[in-house]
Simulated assay, not measured.
Amino acid sequence: MTPRKKLQGLVAATITPMTPDGQINLSVIHQYVDYLVSEQNVKNVFVNGTTGEGLSLNIRERKQLAEEWVRQGKDKLDQVIVHVGALSLPDSQELARHAAAIGASAIAVIAPFFFKPTNKDELIAFLQKVASEAPAVPFYYYHIPPLTGVKIRVEELLDGIKEWIPTFQGVKFSDTDLLDLAQCINKNEREQFAFLYGVDEQLLSALAIGADGAVGSTYNYLGRKTTLMLQAFAKPDLALARKYQFLTGEFLNFVIKLVFPVCKYDHLCLVTLF
């Protein structure tokens, strides 16, 4: 699953399957992989991120999940990206080393969000110390200021970042600041960084300014529909693309009211549906 080309298209931000008594249900990951590939036509995954509530899991649980996704994804998935961010730098470094050892396609890191970096240099220093523990593994920055409160603009962060993190490959951009995203894309065309948008209900807007694809929770179950939107946009058939984007918005409007207020503070609610 070592990436050989720029990451593009859809990446499913995976849910962490749980048993009713709150244990991780590793036994269903193989079904999960088959479902994504055969039913949703999605062959890239982002493990232990926000959707999987990775920051609510302990280190052992996160390692187990990463191992199982890499194991079950072999010869089926194109890329397994493992989020290794943590509030503790040593924990994040340990997870990065582990991801490299098990053969993850790439790693991603969120900004620490309790004792927050206050400027670009502080954030890059943290990211560099994690990336250096997996020096042969592609590295992505996971930008999600609505949850971290770290509002350092990605445009600023990317200036000279390859000098500090040679393995840097791109950004999971989970913010509605499309001006920042547009400037990132406009100023880094030569670098061939991948810009993957993380606000599912606004993906079409991000595609219009040059996003390469998307990482999101809805691609677990709306992967095929979203692929149709990507195809419509590429034709271009903007009316059809808008139709699919509006469908995603309607669906999320419904789901957010029912699920997210309950689940986002308690990873034990993610009981497997398989």
Rank of each mutant, 00 (worst) to 15 (best):
F195C: 05
L147P: 04
E155Q: 14
D180K: 01
L179Q: 10
G170P: 00
I161A: 04
K187I: 00
L158T: 09
N188A: 11
E156P: 05
W164H: 14
I152P: 01
Q169N: 12
V171E: 00
A182F: 03
L181S: 02
E189C: 10
C184Y: 02
I161C: 01
K162G: 06
A194W: 00
G149E: 13
P145F: 10
D159W: 13
T148R: 05
D180N: 11
Y141G: 07
F139K: 04
K172T: 06
F139L: 05
K187A: 14
H143D: 08
Q169C: 12
V154M: 12
K187T: 12
E156F: 10
F173C: 05
L157W: 02
P146K: 09
K187M: 05
L181A: 09
P145S: 09
F195N: 05
A194Y: 01
I152A: 11
E163K: 15
Y142P: 04
I152G: 07
Q192F: 04
K172C: 02
L158M: 09
L181D: 00
E163D: 07
E191Q: 14
S174I: 00
K162H: 07
P138W: 04
S174D: 08
P145I: 13
N186L: 14
S174H: 05
A194C: 09
N186H: 13
Y140S: 05
T148W: 02
L158I: 08
T176L: 12
A182S: 14
I152N: 05
E163T: 14
I152C: 09
Q183W: 08
Q192S: 13
F195L: 04
N186V: 14
A194P: 00
G160K: 08
L158E: 02
N186K: 15
F139N: 05
N188G: 09
L157E: 09
G170M: 02
P146M: 08
E163G: 14
K187E: 08
K187W: 02
T167L: 03
K162Y: 01
F195H: 03
K151T: 15
V154E: 04
N188P: 02
R190T: 15
F173K: 02
D180A: 07
D159P: 01
I185D: 01
F139V: 09
N188F: 09
T176S: 13
Q183T: 13
F168E: 08
T176K: 12
I165G: 02
